Computed example of a mutant assay.
Amino acid sequence: MITVHHLEDSRSQRVLWLLEELEIEYRVERYARDPETGLAPDTLKRVHPLGKSPVISDATRTVAETGLIIDYIVREHGDGRLAPAPGSEDHLRYAYWLHYAEGSLMPPLLLQRVFDTVEKKAPLLARPVAKAISGQVKKKFIRPQQQLHFDYLENELRSHEWFVGDAFTAADIMLSFPIEAAVARAGAGRRCPKLREFVERIQARPAYRRALERGGPYAYA
């Protein structure tokens, strides 16, 4: 049986959702964030040296990194579901979105969170300088990069309902976390109706809702 090492309010929610979509039996090992730092507990390092989530255990295998986990589960346990046929053009597009979600889309969203934290946590005397520097970085780099990606994604959804085409795939699951964050926290929902509709569609899926029940609180839901 697959064990999901699940950190609350984290990207591992996507793994639970995938397993629910595929109706695969699994076990959840829960981890709480440190109340001071918001980081994963050191106990996760017993599972994987980096101490990050998600990680899954499947028999003798330990698999880390969300994109690889999703690809692994679909290949090893999916029975041809939630992915286009290997070797097809749609499969190449599918693989692209699996990598794009964390490789290209997440960094500008994560940078905003980092600089928001810098503004809030800077020592009182240094806070005006920190806010000034942070504001310039956001204005000159972070927000333009975010909008570049939001416009790109919005345009992709103008011609079809899901990112690989008319069929829902695991690529949509992989993209869910950064798009939910973009719509809820980075302003994409105001300017990108197709992204907002995408979030509404995924959150209405029964398997998505079952995964929330199994995983617990999820800040981007």
Rank of each mutant, 00 (worst) to 15 (best):
T3H: 05
T3V: 12
V4N: 08
H5I: 15
E8K: 05
R14K: 04
L16Y: 05
E20F: 10
E20K: 05
E21C: 01
L22W: 09
I24C: 05
E29V: 11
Y31M: 10
A32Y: 09
A32V: 09
D34N: 11
E36P: 03
T37Y: 08
G38D: 09
L39K: 12
L39M: 06
D42Y: 09
T43M: 11
K45A: 10
K45N: 12
V47R: 04
G51Q: 01
G51N: 04
G51V: 01
K52R: 11
K52L: 09
S53Y: 02
S57H: 00
A59I: 10
A59N: 11
T62W: 00
T62C: 03
A64P: 02
T66P: 07
G67K: 02
L68I: 09
D71F: 05
Y72R: 02
I73D: 02
L82I: 01
L82K: 01
A83D: 04
D90R: 08
L92C: 07
Y94Q: 01
Y94A: 04
A95S: 10
E102Y: 06
E102G: 01
L105H: 03
M106K: 00
M106P: 00
P108Y: 08
P108D: 13
L109T: 06
L110V: 09
L111C: 03
Q112L: 03
Q112R: 06
R113K: 01
V114M: 00
F115W: 11
F115E: 01
T117G: 06
T117A: 14
V118P: 07
K120A: 15
A122I: 02
A126Q: 11
R127D: 03
R127N: 01
V129F: 15
A132N: 03
Q136S: 15
V137S: 07
V137C: 11
K138W: 08
K138D: 12
K139C: 13
K139R: 15
K139N: 14
K139F: 13
I142L: 07
H149D: 08
H149M: 07
L157E: 07
R158I: 03
H160Y: 09
V164I: 14
V164T: 14
G165I: 03
A167Y: 06
A167Q: 13
T169F: 04
A170G: 15
A171V: 14
D172M: 13
I173C: 14
M174V: 12
L175R: 13
E180P: 06
E180H: 15
A181D: 12
A182P: 05
A182S: 10
A184C: 14
A186K: 07
G189P: 07
R190F: 10
R191L: 12
L195I: 00
E197S: 14
R201G: 11
R209V: 11
R209P: 00
R209T: 10
A211C: 03
R214Q: 13
A219D: 09
A219N: 08
A219S: 12
A221H: 11
